[in-house]
Design a protein around this nucleic acid. Structure first.
Length: 111
DNA sequence: TATTTGACGATTT
DNA sequence: CAAATCGCCAAAT
């Protein structure tokens, strides 16, 4: 079994995001860290984004539901462009405050 | 083995 | 809000 459950942890958490809901990289990092006991993985928000970038759409991970802390889509987003991303979120019921900012007040995972 | 890089976060200026 | 800085840690070279 792979030692770096690193990616898998991230993928699993992201995969758990319900539709119409968005989360942030930092939040995912915390989830992974607070995830199942025994993980003992130290992850920083950077790693989340990095893992997701390494990931592909076909991996079954809805990366489009993950935004940065500003509630904005990733600046270096590369899987289709902002329009594609925005459209997807809108289709799920996520509201946008601006072209680039999602309504974290409603759809963001608070705690 | 060392250096660079990277879908971020928080803080400060 | 923008720009700069530090932290954070795994992968690629």
């Amino acid at each position: 079994m792979p030692k770096s459950n690193f990616f898998e942890r991230v993928y699993e958490v992201v995969r758990e995001i319900p539709e119409g809901m968005v989360t942030t990289y930092g939040r995912v990092a915390l989830q992974v860290r607070s995830g199942p006991s025994g993980s003992r993985i130290n992850i920083s928000p950077r790693m989340v984004g990095w893992a997701l970038h390494a990931n592909k759409e076909g991996s079954g991970v809805p990366c489009h539901r993950v935004v940065n802390k500003d509630g904005r889509l990733a600046p270096s987003y590369a899987f289709g462009g902002y329009h594609e991303q925005r459209n997807r979120l809108l289709s799920e019921g996520v509201k946008f405050l601006d072209e680039l900012h999602v309504d974290l007040d409603r759809c963001g995972c608070h705690d």
